[in-house]
Amino acid sequence: MQDVLAVVTVVVVGLMVGVEFAVAVFVNPILDRLPNDGGVEARSDGARVLGRVMPFWYIGSVVLGAAWSTLTWGDAGASLVAAGAALLVVSVVMSILLLVPINSRVAAWSQEGVPADWKQQVGRWDRFHYVRVGVIVLAFTLFAVALV
């Protein structure tokens, strides 16, 4: 059971890392290069879609990490799993305090109703997102090392 939980946790967190990494490194930079601020509506739609999905993915990842940590308590590698789970908690707290407020505003934007400082707002979101991606990549790395 513990091995299955470990593999599921690594896969779920790894997929989440892949999505968030792709958003940070590929999707948003591509959207920002669209002419005539064409990326505004795409970012807004992405904020709505991912804003509905990602909370479950993040919380699910924390639950899986915490369960794995509990089952391995006292075993070799348990500290890696606990540290990875703690980093996922940090990513959730960062999300709630820093990213969700901006994301909620972006989700309401349309081509006709964009605030004057929209570029600064998405730039701020992007910077926070880069840090969050670093945190979840580190959590994933700790999980992967603990798995082997």
Rank of each mutant, 00 (worst) to 15 (best):
S69W: 12
V92Q: 10
S91F: 00
V25A: 03
F140D: 09
T70W: 15
V122A: 02
L87C: 01
V25E: 05
V49T: 15
G14K: 06
V62N: 07
Q121N: 01
V89I: 09
L147Y: 05
T72E: 13
I96R: 06
A144D: 00
A76D: 15
T141V: 14
L64M: 11
R33Y: 10
L71S: 12
V62Y: 12
L147C: 05
V62Q: 02
I59K: 14
V145I: 02
N36Y: 10
V122C: 09
G84Q: 09
G14T: 05
R48H: 02
V148P: 05
D45V: 13
S110N: 06
L97I: 13
M1C: 11
L142Y: 07
A85Q: 11
L138W: 06
W125N: 08
Y130L: 15
L71Q: 14
G39E: 04
G113W: 04
V145C: 12
Y58F: 12
M94C: 10
S79A: 15
V137W: 10
L99Q: 07
G74C: 03
G123W: 02
M54W: 12
D45H: 02
L71T: 14
R105L: 07
V40R: 09
V40C: 11
V90C: 03
W73F: 15
A86F: 06
A24V: 12
F26K: 00
V106P: 01
T141H: 05
L34F: 08
S44C: 06
A139W: 03
L15W: 15
L99Y: 05
G113P: 06
G74T: 06
G113Q: 12
L99N: 09
V40E: 03
V100D: 01
Q2C: 00
V148W: 13
A82T: 14
G65A: 01
D32M: 04
L50M: 15
D75E: 15
I30R: 11
W125V: 00
V81Y: 11
S95K: 03
V81S: 08
V145S: 13
A66V: 15
R124E: 11
G14H: 13
Q120C: 12
V62M: 15
P55I: 05
D37Q: 09
V4R: 10
I30W: 04
V23R: 11
G84Y: 00
G18T: 08
L97H: 13
V135W: 02
S69L: 08
V13A: 07
A42F: 01
G77Q: 00
V106Q: 01
I96V: 14
P101H: 02
V62T: 09
R124I: 14
G46D: 03
A108F: 01
V23N: 08
E20M: 14
E20S: 06
A107T: 04
G74D: 11
A108P: 04
Y130I: 15
E41S: 03
P55A: 02
